[in-house]
Design a protein around this nucleic acid. Structure first.
Length: 348
DNA sequence: AACCCACGCAACCGCAGGGCG
DNA sequence: GCGCCCTGCGGTTGCGTGGGT
């Protein structure tokens, strides 16, 4: 017993649409609308097409104000930043790009942007491999590799770090994809306003070398960056004991709920973990800490200043891409990404 | 000129989720 | 609560085309 077909496949034409079919469909919908029933539409028009096919044709091609090809640098930026933020949620990404369809963006990403970014990433890796020639750097690589192994094991086992007994008593912040829907964050404007609202009362510091404890309105504190090895997707929450014995919680894993987060990124993390440094909390103007493998140990002598981190404001994968770098600077096209990170911290 | 291959794009397929009886 | 129907979405496929040999 399979699912009933949506149409009589024997009497349905498949393949490319002819100009006549396009004209029929377009004129009918412009005059009568879809009637809320795509399945019945082709019969009304006299088209031997599946209703789903009609819908697709209309949405992706015949609909007014559709743009095809010729993606601008600005659109590239938006796509990159949103992909980093939410993954392959093409319909959401398309909603931020007037005149673009999810199918178009998906194709554009798969055929161009992905290759472009991965190509740059590989070049970076090769260049870095050449740079790693002195002993100190070799030691760094060894250390980071060890951390990668630990992180990779966790990722492979898919055991959320917060499920460990170590964190069992810690109220874990949760952010997931549905959070966006819950807050009606279906467009950039609402995302932005949401962010603005949430940021009220928060003081930002541009001097990342200071050690302020920026109080949050919800009582959460943002500790000074004390140590940093390399953050990974599994390395997002730390309990930090401060000098005054108060406890602060670090931001959450922003990918919770994004189980299908792009494999490209997993690949990149595994291949070149250090490249992912700063990926998660690279908010340029917020003091947020990185910590070591989710450990509560904050006594490491290794440290990375926010001055360094600010150069990794964004996923290096994307940051490698000049267009996206510009987008970061402009701060206009990374709203969703920042909010993903921000919600990871705020929605506790 | 013929063939091969890679690429880009349009379209298809299957699944998930919501609405409704 | 259950099942059916429909829509929407994301992944995948297949065809057309252009460049290289």
């Amino acid at each position: 017993m399979g699912r009933a077909p949506c149409c009589d496949k024997a009497n349905v034409k498949k393949g490319p649409w002819s100009p006549e079919e396009d004209a029929k469909l377009k004129s009918y919908i412009e005059q009568h609308g879809t009637g809320g029933n795509w399945i019945a539409l082709p019969q009304k028009i006299g088209l031997k097409r599946c209703g789903k096919s009609c819908r697709l044709r209309w949405l992706n091609y015949l609909r007014p104000n559709i743009k095809h090809g010729g993606f601008s640098e600005e659109e590239d930026n938006i796509i990159c930043s949103l992909y980093v933020s939410i993954g392959s949620r093409w319909s959401i990404i398309a909603a931020q790009l007037p005149g673009r369809t999810d199918n178009d963006i998906k194709n554009y990403w798969n055929t161009r942007l992905k290759k472009k970014l991965l190509g740059k990433q590989r070049k970076e890796q090769q260049a870095q491999a050449r740079r790693v020639s002195n002993n100190q750097q070799k030691q760094d690589v060894k250390r980071e590799t060890e951390n990668l192994i630990v992180a990779s094991e966790v990722m492979i086992n898919q055991v959320p770090y917060w499920s460990s007994s170590e964190f069992s008593s810690v109220p874990m912040p949760v952010t997931n994809a549905s959070s966006f829907q819950h807050y009606g964050l279906n467009n950039q404007t609402s995302l932005r306003s949401m962010m603005v609202n949430k940021l009220e009362g928060i003081t930002f510091s541009n001097d990342h070398h200071q050690q302020p404890q920026q109080p949050y309105t919800n009582g959460c504190e943002i500790p000074y960056l004390q140590d940093q090895v390399f953050p990974t997707m599994v390395n997002h929450v730390t309990v930090v004991s401060n000098e005054n014995n108060s406890v602060t919680y670090q931001p959450s894993n922003i990918f919770q709920g994004f189980e299908n987060f792009p494999s490209d990124f997993c690949e990149l993390v595994c291949v070149n973990p250090q490249q992912m440094e700063g990926f998660n909390y690279g908010m340029e103007s917020m003091d947020m800490s990185m910590s070591n493998g989710g450990s509560t140990n904050t006594t490491s002598t290794e440290s990375t200043s926010w001055g360094e981190m600010s150069s990794l404001v964004y996923s290096p994968l994307v940051a490698d891409y000049e267009g996206c770098r510009q987008g970061i600077i402009a701060q206009d096209h990374v709203v969703a990404f920042e909010e993903c990170k921000y919600f990871g911290m705020q929605m506790q």
